[in-house]
């Protein structure tokens, strides 16, 4: 199915284009816009973006794969990105990771069968003073996390997704 921007996003796209003297410079913001609309960058969207920006699809693809924040495949509704760099490691991020793995029953870069959670580790999020740090999607960070906060957070997320909170293990 051909990819098209919604009318609202088309307007946003034109606003983005107006900020750069060269169309190609709008590539990163355009990829974010596609991801906002579609959740990930599908094959059709790659061709669509290439045409809009006057570059080759392979140039779009090369950029997507260079950066960590663009997805070529669908991810869960909540993408849990746990920092595992030095300061977070010093304050226990590994325990949090082990806990997330066992509670969600998935490994890194995997998604729960209900499509709710994808689990990833990320490099320093620039918030080491409030380690350990977790980012969900592109939302403000969850900071100073312990196991209890993490459990509460998972329940909160499940509830916000319209699910009953998980039974106590």
């Amino acid at each position: 199915m051909a990819f098209e921007f919604t009318a609202e996003n088309q307007t946003e796209f034109e606003r983005i284009l107006s900020r750069y003297p060269q169309k190609r410079a709008a590539l990163l913001p355009t990829l974010y816009l596609v991801q906002k609309q579609h959740g990930y960058v599908c094959k059709d969207a790659i061709g669509f973006i290439a045409e809009k920006l006057g570059i080759e699809p392979v140039q779009v693809y090369a950029v997507i794969t260079f950066y960590t924040m663009f997805n070529l495949k669908p991810v869960g509704r909540f993408h849990l990105q746990l920092c595992n760099n030095i300061s977070c490691m010093l304050l226990g991020s590994e325990k949090l990771l082990a806990h997330l793995r066992s509670r969600l029953g998935i490994g890194l870069k995997e998604t729960t069968p209900d499509g709710l959670f994808t689990l990833s580790t990320v490099e320093c999020l620039g918030s080491c003073g409030t380690a350990p740090v977790l980012q969900i999607n592109c939302d403000p960070y969850r900071e100073n996390l312990g196991i209890e906060e993490l459990d509460r957070l998972l329940d909160e997320l499940r509830a916000s997704a319209g699910d009953a909170p998980a039974a106590q293990e």
Binding site: I86, S87, C124, G126, S127, C128, G129
Partner: peptide
Amino acid sequence: DESEPGTFKDR
């Protein structure tokens, strides 16, 4: 860009 591990000042 503030990506140097241990740095969170520009934020």
